[in-house]
Design a binder for these strands. Sequence first.
DNA 1: TCTTAATTAAGAATCTTTCTTATTTGAAGA
DNA 2: TCTTCAAATAAGAAAGATTCTTAATTAAGA
Lengths: 170, 170
Amino acid sequence: MTRSRTELKKMLGHFKAVVRSAGVKMTPQRLEIYRETARTDDHPALETIYRNVRAKMPGVSLDTVYRTLDLFRELGLVSTLRPLPDRARFDANTTPHHHYICTRCGLTRDFTDPKLDSLKVPSAARALGCIESAHVEVRGLCTACANDKNTKPTDRTRSRRTKPKLKRRD
Amino acid sequence: MTRSRTELKKMLGHFKAVVRSAGVKMTPQRLEIYRETARTDDHPALETIYRNVRAKMPGVSLDTVYRTLDLFRELGLVSTLRPLPDRARFDANTTPHHHYICTRCGLTRDFTDPKLDSLKVPSAARALGCIESAHVEVRGLCTACANDKNTKPTDRTRSRRTKPKLKRRD
DNA sequence: TCTTAATTAAGAATCTTTCTTATTTGAAGA
DNA sequence: TCTTCAAATAAGAAAGATTCTTAATTAAGA
């Protein structure tokens, strides 16, 4: 679903303000990658973004798209439907429950709550198709990560790319 | 968190019943992979399961773990924290909203609902760490997939591995 | 026990993600 | 506007994750 012209303009304005105040450079690549990500509400996969950006800017490298989307995520400009990077995780608990996920180390814990279990799926969702399951996903910084800056990431074999520190202003 | 012996025994019973009624073979590899997945509620990544299974059965191949967990998912014995296979998807909408995800084609749609937006995070979740966000994830078969058995998967470049059809009994 | 289709191991192939290096460039200050 | 330089980029290599191919093994029904 394509976003309206006015909505897109508003988002682009916000994008530019965030980039400026974060003290990172505004490049044509970043502008185009943001524009493409914001163009629709389809939640495009990275490969789709890459393909569409290249149609306009043939020289853009795949690595730039990875780096840029990761930067956008740090700046809060985009979110990902799962913590990136992470792998699929498996859950043998087939009873209704919900998840708490640490955005830093990937720790994933079940929690239950009677009120949430009987959660009503609104008609806006039911209109999209049949419902198989509904659960709440809570994200945050787990206690261990909050306490210890050096906690080892859980269940993650690959280390994060080293990035230059963001110079935050104001 | 290790599951209690009684709970594990109950889950193993369920596992065996499902395998039998689905008409698929019970193999030592499957039993061990299930046992390992059900042993804790840590939501292990595939690589963790593989490592632990190999400690007991050194010959098991990585491919078998992939195939087996995918089978378990089809049988409803395990769920994954994201539809498998899929890639990270990006979302430039930074306002509160929720997601509907089609388990077949990966279609991902936003929906909003005032009641869900003001969703209270229960203390069971708050005990695990600080809260950055909370949203509802609804899964099901989207209208297009329900209508058309040949809908093309959205935004997925790789085709699923061809699998033998499950012979369902009863 | 015998038979056979399902399942597996092994390794190759493919795809995804990250890293290294050399080059280019945005933007702040002269 | 010009200069400067840290930040950002392209290109390709490397590493890692996932799937496929093939041949051998095996679970489970006859």
